[in-house]
Design a protein around this nucleic acid. Structure first.
Length: 493
DNA sequence: CACTAGTGCAA
DNA sequence: TATTGCACTAGTG
């Protein structure tokens, strides 16, 4: 979190143009019609390391502080009326600006990593990886670089002549879905799958995270980027703590390495089905609302609707398909995409989608209305007024236009969920402070907040957090929050 | 060292 | 031909 005078200006620019990832000083100044571009360029002509200097780097490159202050003030003068004119003032003043202090505090707080446990898990993975390598070379009849998709493709598709599925720019794909499809054709495939999973986890997490432990605090301190995404979500870097494994049995031990300080506890609180609740709300879909009001399992209920059976007749396969459909709806699915993921004929998948839209007619209307509006206005907005321009809808390329349709629908849902949790963060943080509690917010993972604090505070903290998150925004159906406490991140969930 | 492609982790 | 990110490795220039 680079704090400083420039941060508000950067945020304003981000709200005005969420498409643009970096706000290079001269570009901003030029947009604002401020004639400082030559001055800045003249002073800051050191070789850029990434081709696009950030404001902070530009200052380091030689802009003097007084000049920077004048520039930022001039930019603010330009941006403030634009922010207000676009109806973004309350989002700016009540959400994004207050969030800055919260994010800074979270980064400063950091999170403890159990380096010993990390090393133990890593050693176990390393032994298994060595064993798999030997077996893979044996089955291949030669040694090759297993980490090279190109060489894996050569072995599988040329030497062993296994079925070729999708192709990419350079050759046939060897990704996880392809390997899963040809698993039964040769014993080497399963071993490559395992090798990939283990090396992924070892390289990305087990071997890298220890280097990022701050020797001063003994904890890892991520950087949250408040202006990185097109939808309003946060992002996390160096390390990215928003993609720590949890889904697979192999990955879960990695998450267990994130622990509370000695004698402390972690509290994890996550929104239950927040995006589908947002969808039910914004689409005003009564059937979906009823499901949430009744506290039913939304995927099972969707399966019952789509397959026209009673909820207690839904089997695990049907529920899993309905779950894919629900995810897909949020992403703007097509019959083709669903067929690809469910591995079923396109016709059948299209029937699924059609059946879903019949059963949830307001969802269909919502999708149509959002797209229509986006075509007319050129942008979409979230519940709190955040906007994203959708230039893709004006493209001459039909594929790009269809992409625009999906972006329009998804941005309203994903962006609204992002608005909501940002409000919850600001409120949780303020309440914990008001109550003079020792519990601290340490991470945000899109629909989850992770806190750390003394065990004796956990009951109160859990109630406080649940309340603030649930009431961050009044939806119909209401928001629901699941929460748990543990000594490590896995155990808290 | 910078860059792209492929891959895969999360929500 | 389902959304948003970040980061790793191999390969190339």
């Amino acid at each position: 979190m680079e704090l400083g005078l420039e941060h508000d200006t950067m945020l304003a620019a981000y709200l005005l143009e969420p498409q643009r990832r970096t706000y290079e000083l001269t570009e901003l100044a030029a947009d604002a019609g401020i004639g400082l571009a030559e001055g800045a360029a003249a002073k800051g002509d050191d070789k850029e390391d990434d081709g696009q200097l950030s404001l902070g780097e530009e200052v380091e490159a030689g802009l003097d502080p007084a000049e920077e202050a004048r520039l930022v003030a001039a930019l603010a003068e330009d941006q403030a009326p634009r922010v207000i004119g676009l109806g973004l003032e309350s989002l700016m003043r009540e959400v994004e600006l207050p969030l800055i202090a919260v994010l800074a505090a979270m980064e400063r707080e950091g999170l403890r990593l159990d380096a010993k446990r990390l090393a133990e898990v890593g050693a176990g993975f390393g032994a298994r990886i060595d064993q798999l390598e030997t077996e893979i070379y044996e089955l291949a009849g030669e040694e090759f670089t297993i980490g090279s998709p190109q060489q894996v493709g050569r072995i599988l598709f040329e030497k062993l002549e296994l079925s070729r599925k999708r192709r990419g720019k350079t050759g046939f794909s060897t990704d996880a879905r392809v390997l899963q499809q040809i698993r039964d054709e040769h014993p080497i495939v399963e071993k490559i799958e395992s090798w990939r999973e283990l090396t992924k986890l070892k390289n990305t997490y087990l071997d890298s995270l220890p280097d990022l432990i701050d020797p001063g605090t003994g904890r890892v301190h991520t950087t949250f980027n408040q202006a990185a995404t097109t939808t309003g979500r946060l992002s996390s870097t160096n390390p990215n703590l928003q993609n720590i494994p949890i889904r697979s049995d192999i990955g879960r031990p990695v998450r267990a390495c994130f622990v509370a300080a000695d004698g402390a506890r972690l509290l994890s609180a996550d929104y239950s089905q927040v995006e589908l609740r947002v969808l039910a709300h914004v689409a005003d879909e009564q059937v979906l609302k009823d499901v949430f009001h009744a506290g039913e399992d939304v995927h099972a209920a969707t399966a019952a609707e789509v397959f026209e059976i009673s909820p207690d007749e839904v089997d695990v396969g049907q529920r899993s398909k309905a779950k894919m459909v629900n995810f897909g709806i949020v992403y703007g699915l097509t019959g083709f995409g669903l067929a690809d993921r469910l591995n079923i004929p396109r016709k059948e998948a299209e029937e699924f989608v059609a059946r879903y839209l019949e059963r949830f007619p307001a969802v269909r209307r919502f999708r149509e209305e959002v797209v229509e509006r986006a075509q007319e206005e050129g942008y979409v907005t979230t519940l709190m007024g955040r906007r994203r321009p959708i230039p893709e809808l004006r493209s001459g390329n039909p594929n790009t236009r269809r992409l625009g349709e999906r972006l329009a629908v998804n941005t309203v849902i994903q962006g609204t969920a992002a608005d909501i949790i940002k409000v919850a963060m600001v409120r949780c943080w303020a309440r914990l402070r008001e109550e003079q509690m020792a519990t601290r917010l340490v991470l945000q993972i899109h629909d989850e907040l992770l806190f750390e604090g003394p065990p004796e505070e956990m009951d109160a903290a859990l109630e406080l957090v649940k309340h603030e998150m649930t009431h961050a925004y009044e939806l119909d159906p209401p928001l629901e929050v699941d929460a748990g406490v543990g000594t490590d991140w896995l155990g808290a969930k």
